[in-house]
């Protein structure tokens, strides 16, 4: 059953250089309880896609000009500010990249969790304090009763990210948008944080959009993957299918660029060129200047989504 469906989403930003088309008609959906990986290079539009779902894009300079975001059957773009406040943190939660700066330094962890609980009043919690302790316990913070009285600076990085997860999941949302949740953490605690998310996902039956540029994380935690390139979605497929049989030249390039311990570093494939700027993107397919298989049509016409069957979708003229 589809939980969230994004249809033809266009997002633009007013910048000093001109109008930047940051999302150029993206489509994807996510089913209940599923984990969707959103991967791509820096600046490809992964994070703004997450922020758009919660309508957290600062306007101005950002503006969603076209498209629909259907969550549990309702278009979020038509919601009032008040309705969005109920959805944020209540039905859709989001966690960010750097836990060192994403918690308010002057309130205790417990206070910040309690604030979310008081706001959304999730079912099945006897009191706010019980909810706080339970939330900290669920992210494996030892001695949650006394840790709730700590301030963020008394937590380590990994603990802060778990505290953040506890806060955001205390109200049992049906969707979590995790924006590079492990990028700023030590490798040793990355796995732990991902495990905490996976455990809670199972327990709450929640869907997760995992925004990352780490393909290893994707392979390990995701059911499906959407590969983004310069504000467009290049390819969406089940994770095994994508890694075994990538169709889009960009996806192939990305996978070829993963260093492997059993191969010579000199064989590492690179994608020539660099990410285009959003103010003057290439005409037609935005990837064509860097694509080894580019054809004449790629320089003129924007590729449409081609369904290769079994939920494998690719936006490339090679398959059109």
């Amino acid at each position: 059953m589809t939980l969230l469906e994004i249809k033809n989403l266009h997002l633009q930003f007013q910048s000093d250089e001109g109008l930047a088309l940051v999302l150029d008609g993206i489509n994807f959906d996510i089913k209940k309880g599923e984990t969707l990986g959103l991967v791509g290079e820096s600046g490809c539009g992964k994070s703004v896609t997450g922020l758009s779902v919660l309508r957290l894009i600062p306007t101005p300079p950002g503006e969603i000009t076209e498209g629909e975001i259907i969550f549990e059957g309702e278009n979020l773009l038509e919601k009032s500010a008040k309705e969005m406040q109920n959805i944020r943190g209540g039905r859709i939660a989001m966690i960010f990249q750097d836990p060192m700066v994403s918690l308010n330094p002057v309130y205790t962890i417990g206070d910040q969790i309690a604030e979310a609980i008081d706001l959304h009043q999730p079912k099945g919690i006897t009191s706010t304090w019980d909810g706080v302790v339970e939330a900290l316990d669920s992210v494996q913070i030892a001695d949650p009763e006394s840790r709730a009285h700590n301030y963020p600076h008394q937590f380590s990085g990994g603990m802060r990210q778990r505290g953040m997860i506890a806060m955001m999941l205390s109200c049992r949302p049906s969707l979590l948008i995790a924006d590079e949740p492990t990028t700023a953490l030590d490798v040793t605690v990355q796995a732990q944080v991902l495990q905490v998310i996976a455990d809670l996902q199972k327990e709450l039956g929640m869907a997760v959009i995992l925004i990352t540029h780490n393909l290893g994380v994707v392979a390990e935690s995701c059911d499906r993957v959407a590969v983004m390139y310069a504000g467009t979605i290049a390819e969406i497929a089940d994770v095994e299918k994508l890694f075994e049989n990538p169709k889009h030249p960009y996806t192939r390039g990305l996978l070829g660029a993963i260093p492997r311990a059993d191969r010579d570093m000199n064989d590492l494939a690179i994608i020539e060129g660099s990410v285009p700027n959003h103010v003057n993107p290439p005409k037609g397919c935005r990837f064509h200047p860097r694509c080894k298989e580019a054809m004449d049509i790629c320089r003129i016409e924007k590729p449409t989504d081609v369904d290769l069957g079994e939920d494998h979708i690719v936006a490339c003229h090679l398959y059109g």
């Binding site: 957290l56 969005m84 406040q85 944020r88 960010f96 308010n104 330094p105 604030e115 979310a116």
Partner: peptide, 24 residues
Amino acid sequence: EYSLTARAKGISEWLIMFKHVLRN
């Protein structure tokens, strides 16, 4: 970023200003 966190939590703009922003 913690102001963005507060917003993502569903707190009203008014409360973000007076509770989260001004205190800092």
